[in-house]
Design a protein around this nucleic acid. Structure first.
Lengths: 295, 295
DNA sequence: GAATTCCATAGGCCATACCTATGCAAGGCT
DNA sequence: AGCCTTGCATAGGTATGGCCTATGGAATTC
């Protein structure tokens, strides 16, 4: 059984006429006759009663017709669906990102991507790098934006470095500037109880690690909030916080930004995906957008 | 798109392995690779992510898989249904017959046919010849058993004469034999009020026509019943009736059968079907049974 | 009865599906 | 580290078979 044969069969069934059916499907009449005959031979039953000028379906033809139509409709549907996926008219991207990335660089990229491909659903998972790597490995995510280096448990992931950004100290302009106004050193944070993120933010691990490298354990005024809450606490004057420069820029008014001297605190944001399976078409497109914009 | 390509595609999707999929569908691995590639080219999208030892469906492949399965299942269903029809494991015969034929010759034929082909539904329409011919022409019947000659309105029907049978007079043994015991002439029915069938029985038209040919109009004790009722009335002694010899034979005890002298009353039962369309396979089989048994 | 209509058949051509042999890249083993 | 195995892709040759044109043959029409 072949798709062409079914097309021919349906054409004859609908026109009740071999010659006109042949015209409709754009083949010579003998070719159509042959294929109908081949189909009949394969199925072991006549499909049409060929009375001169009165072609009619036999009972076997009657039984085949609805199935043939459905098969052809399914084939059309398949072509259409696959094409829509390929042309990014449909689909989804499951993107994981750390909270600071979600706040910082994602919004404008996602806006541009969504404008270009309005049919693609964007599913964002906001988690710590560790969780994101696990979700990637499980296949629950197509892509993830994480801070390098990868956790040691990382399975076979491919990473593309997108950007390295400095971390800065934000504080309330209503309070004395930490360190007196100029660039700060990490050591100067020793006496500054910080507003700190909840566990899971790699910013937290990064900051704590930098303090420990300077020989002290940082102290926290308050800890546990998400990005927005932390900025709010800082703005209210609870204390300074260490955030990515990009976040500080966008945080709006009411915050003073102080760079860290010699940029000892940086982080590298990378795009990660599984090495063993290529990301879906839509995800590859988003990867391109990200790489083109930042790398 | 071709059925083979879908078969190969499903095999690879299920085994997640080109080489094993090739074994499963009994082709060489390069052939399978080529066909998958051809399918991907036609659809305009990759269907598998070919990572060494980890073949996985892409999103396009995910979209295609359920449709491919359904198409293949439909194709199997089509093959099966058509075969079952062809092998008389399923199907139906719509058979029309006059009431006397239904009573007389149909039962044993239908029993034999049903035993041979238990999957075939038998739909009997019991009507007068005129109605049967009309139903045949409409395509509402596959076959009809009618009394010849065909009504003048008969469209293009092919008839096969099955049998010619004498009509006989049945009467109650408790009453004096009509005509005194020997064979009767039609003329002798002039003084015999008959038990007569309802309109629609060709036996009625036949009998009345024979009487008129002898120059008299028959009179009826009672009229309007079906075959069983008529026999019952005769058995009860209401009067004699003219019935086919075959019916008289089967009518059981309680009836006296008197032949008509010189067999002036006969009828020919024929099998009729449309000339322009061949009857379905099952109907042809039943035709063969009828012709083999009676012609 | 000649013409027309319409499906089937015949024969040649070419596309393509299949095969075997080989290439090439990635792990795994000694 | 280097060889071997595994596994998909590629190359080239063969043959099946689908499509074409030309023709046959039966039934209907004028």
């Amino acid at each position: 059984m072949q798709f062409q044969q079914l097309v021919y069969f349906v054409a004859v069934a609908e026109t009740r006429h071999f010659t006109r059916a042949a015209e409709r499907v754009h083949v010579a009449q003998p070719s159509l006759s042959q294929q109908i005959k081949a189909l009949e031979r394969e199925l072991g039953a006549e499909l049409f009663s060929r009375a001169r000028g009165n072609i009619a379906l036999t009972d076997a033809g009657e039984a085949l017709l609805p199935l043939a139509r459905r098969i052809l409709a399914d084939a059309d549907t398949a072509r259409l669906e696959v094409q829509e996926l390929a042309q990014l008219r449909r689909g989804r991207v499951r993107l994981g990102a750390t909270p600071s990335v979600c706040t910082g660089l994602l919004p404008e990229v996602l806006l541009a991507f969504h404008s270009a491909h309005p049919g693609i659903r964007l599913l964002i998972e906001e988690s710590g790098s560790l969780d994101l790597v696990r979700e990637l490995a499980r296949g629950a995510l197509d892509l993830a934006l994480i801070a390098l280096p990868l956790p040691p448990s990382a399975p076979a992931l491919t990473t593309v470095e997108l950007l390295t950004e400095d971390l800065v100290v934000v504080s309330s302009p209503d309070r004395p500037a930490p360190g007196g106004g100029g660039p700060l050193t990490v050591a100067e944070l020793r006496d500054q109880p910080l507003v700190m993120f909840r566990h899971g933010y790699d910013l937290r691990e990064l900051t704590v690690a930098a303090c420990r490298a300077e020989g002290f354990e940082p102290s926290f005024v308050v800890e546990g909030g998400e990005m927005d809450a932390v900025l709010g606490f800082v703005r209210a004057g609870l204390g300074p916080a260490v955030v990515p420069a990009m976040v500080a820029e966008r945080a709006g008014p009411g915050l003073r930004t102080t760079p860290l001297a010699g940029s000892p605190l940086r982080r590298t944001i990378a795009l990660a995906h599984r090495t063993d399976v290529a990301p879906p078409r839509a995800a590859r497109e988003l990867m391109w957008d990200l790489i083109g914009r930042y790398a």
